[in-house]
Write a protein that binds this DNA or RNA. Structure first.
Length: 419
RNA sequence: GUGGGUGUAGCUCAGUUGGCAGAGCGCCAGGUUGUGGUCCUGGAUGUCGGGGGUUCAAGUCCCCUCACUCACCCCA
């Protein structure tokens, strides 16, 4: 082999690729149904957008970005997440000057320079949704519910929703100081102590048992929320409960990006190896201003397409044989029949059937194998005898039953049989 | 960035104290000159990840290196 896919990336091939495509569509379906509009943004942006938007203190920005200079000397970065780009696009095109909230969804590749392992790759796919320009707990609840429905529609049973509030500009600084006081008294390694000063909330997210033990008794955001944040969070919880969306309060859920405020949530699953999140998001009321825009309180999420696929695999939802590629498969015998079959196949496709035929001059046996492997219900066998009779042999591959059908009627007959 | 595991046919893998490169599946052909899936028979395919070393002899032992993979860290 001369080349292989770059480290940390992988190819999606049939039949798995078809299923991933279906996962992507299923995750997007609820938001589309809810009236969110589709947005596509470039896969690379001005590096500064992510530094300002995602936050210089995050690992994503400090060590996981694919950054390069283009020939014009601009520093560009392959997007490590989608929200900053969407906010940038909204501000650039003044979508927020219209009716609010602006509701958008997207689907695409994201890139992070990390050591790959199960469920974590340098190139991965997300479906995301954002509702910008409204401070309304119902919007938070709506988005959470739409994501929840996406997972449920795929048959997933093991997804758990974790919910928390990070407070706002009023109460977060107070909490942050209290947390820092607590953390400074702990026995932690140097990197973690440095994190206390830069982004203390993320220390709560440390998975190491020796760290988690010490975090017993740490001050929690929930106890420091101001009245407004507390009321807001209670309303989100009430609405989710009313919708029947089950959630678990997770006071230590902080998430890794700097822009989150108030509501944060994460959908976790146990089938992803060492990873746990199949999706996550929250409110980011200050992001627009960080990017030079007006106040634009917003909420959104991103769901991992490939991680959702892994979760489905872990639940055994992908065990059944994949769907047949086509319904009908042409088996021509000889040159004359091959030309006629080529036309017939196109005719049947135009009539709405899924059809393939044997290519490459295979013999009858080889062509029939092709028919079998295509998953087609019917094989159409066309040789000189049939051409002379202006007919084709229609063979039901499930029963081996074969009937002769006039060429002029094949389309109608097949459509009848396949209904 | 750090640590563990694994690299042998297209795929999954076996290969003993160092002694002729293997199996299953898949693929191709034939059995059936106009019939697949089952069955039978036959066939093709190897830089044993790469380089170096030890040895009469290395897939096997040693060193280096690369890749993959899992985990830490972090996140979707």
């Amino acid at each position: 082999m001369t080349f292989q896919s770059p480290k940390g990336t992988y190819d999606l091939l049939p039949p798995a690729s078809e299923r991933v495509l279906a996962v992507r569509e299923a995750l997007a379906a609820p938001v589309r149904q809810a009236g969110y509009g589709y947005v596509e943004t470039p896969t690379f942006e001005d590096t500064e957008l992510f530094k300002r938007g995602v936050g210089e203190s995050t690992d994503v920005v400090s060590k996981e970005m694919y950054t390069f200079d283009d020939k014009g000397g601009r520093s560009l970065t392959l997007r490590p997440e989608g929200t900053a780009s969407v906010v940038r696009a909204v501000l650039q095109h003044n979508l927020h000057n219209g009716q609010l909230p602006v509701k958008l969804w997207y689907s695409g590749s994201q890139y992070r320079y990390e050591r790959a392992q199960k469920g974590r790759y340098r190139h991965f796919w997300q479906v995301g949704a954002e509702a910008l320009g409204a401070e309304d707990p119902a919007l938070d609840a709506e988005l959470v519910a739409l994501a929840w429905r996406g997972f449920a529609s795929l048959g997933l049973k093991g997804v758990t929703l974790l919910l928390n509030s990070l407070g706002d500009q009023v109460c977060r600084p107070v909490y942050r100081a209290a947390l820092q006081d607590f953390l400074r008294g702990l026995d932690l390694d140097e990197a973690t102590r440095a994190r206390i000063e830069i982004n203390p909330l993320r220390v709560l997210d440390d998975k190491r048992p020796e760290v988690q033990e010490q975090l017993e008794g740490a001050p929690l955001v929930a106890d420091h929320l101001c009245a407004a944040c507390k009321a807001y969070h209670e309303e989100v919880r009430t609405l989710l409960t009313a919708l029947g969306v089950p959630f678990t309060d997770e006071p230590k859920l902080v998430r890794g990006l700097d822009y989150y405020t108030r509501t944060t949530f994460e959908f976790v699953h146990g089938g992803l190896g060492s990873q746990s999140a199949v999706g996550g998001g929250g409110r980011y009321d200050g992001l627009s201003e960080m990017l030079g825009g007006p106040a634009l309180p917003s909420v959104g999420w991103a769901l991992g397409v490939d991680r959702t696929y892994l979760a489905m695999e872990a639940e055994g939802l992908l065990d059944e044989a994949p769907a047949a590629r086509v319904q009908v498969y042409g088996v021509p015998l000889g040159e004359e029949a091959r030309r006629r079959m080529f036309l017939l196949v196109e005719e049947l496709r135009a009539a709405g059937l899924r059809v393939d035929m044997a290519f490459g001059g295979k013999g009858l046996k080889g062509a029939m194998k092709g028919a079998d492997r295509s998953g087609a219900r019917f094989a159409l066998i066309l040789g000189e005898r049939d051409l002379a009779a202006q007919a084709v042999q229609v063979k039901d591959l499930t029963t081996a039953e074969q009937t002769e059908v006039p060429l002029a009627q094949v389309s109608d007959v097949l459509k009848g049989k396949l209904q």
